[in-house]
């Protein structure tokens, strides 16, 4: 199928075996993300100690792209400082817009294929928008 670029192996792997699913112990920051047009709905669960994201989990429902993106997010930002995590979020959003990321995003770069499918960009960015909201202040993210 010509969607192979979108549904890369690493994305399907994260979708089939999601990492860090569930709320983390000692959660003290959450970020909610909703996409009203498709009903995707997820919560990032974070334990912040000082400036460090020591534990990151997620729960919710969504398509393969959204769930894989959330799963990869938790792997990517766990152990990072708040400013580093926010910089990652910006880089990932740029990546799925089709821009060259400023840093090496590791397996998250698998999301680059989304750029060719405008309707799926919101699926990929939802967890990262939710992260920005969680770390920047209270509120709920939406990709509408």
């Amino acid at each position: 199928m010509s969607l192979d670029n979108l549904y890369r192996r690493v994305i399907l792997d994260h979708y089939r075996s999601p990492r860090n699913k569930g709320r983390v112990k000692g959660e003290n920051v959450i970020g909610e993300g909703k996409n009203p047009s498709c009903g995707d709905d997820l919560v990032l669960s974070i334990r912040l100690e000082g400036d460090d994201l020591v534990a990151v989990g997620w729960e919710g429902e969504g398509c393969a792209i959204c769930c894989a993106s959330a799963s990869m997010l938790t792997k990517a930002i766990e152990g990072k400082r708040v400013d580093e995590a926010l910089a990652w979020a910006e880089s990932v959003k740029a990546l799925v817009r089709g821009e060259e990321p400023k840093e090496d995003l590791g397996e998250v770069e698998a999301l680059a294929g989304v750029a060719k499918f405008a309707v799926r960009v919101k699926c990929a960015t939802l967890p990262w928008v939710a992260l920005g909201i969680a770390l920047d202040g209270e509120g709920e993210a939406t990709t509408e």
Binding site: M1, S2, L3, L6, Y7, S37, C38, G39, E61, G62, C63, A64, I65, C67, F117, V119, R120, C123
Partner: peptide, 19 residues
């Protein structure tokens, strides 16, 4: 998920609604 299915089916020319 309906969105994944609908997107994949679209590649075969099939237009169905998801959501």
């Amino acid at each position: 998920h309906p969105h994944d299915l609908s997107h994949l089916m679209d590649q075969e020319g099939v237009a169905v609604r998801a959501g």
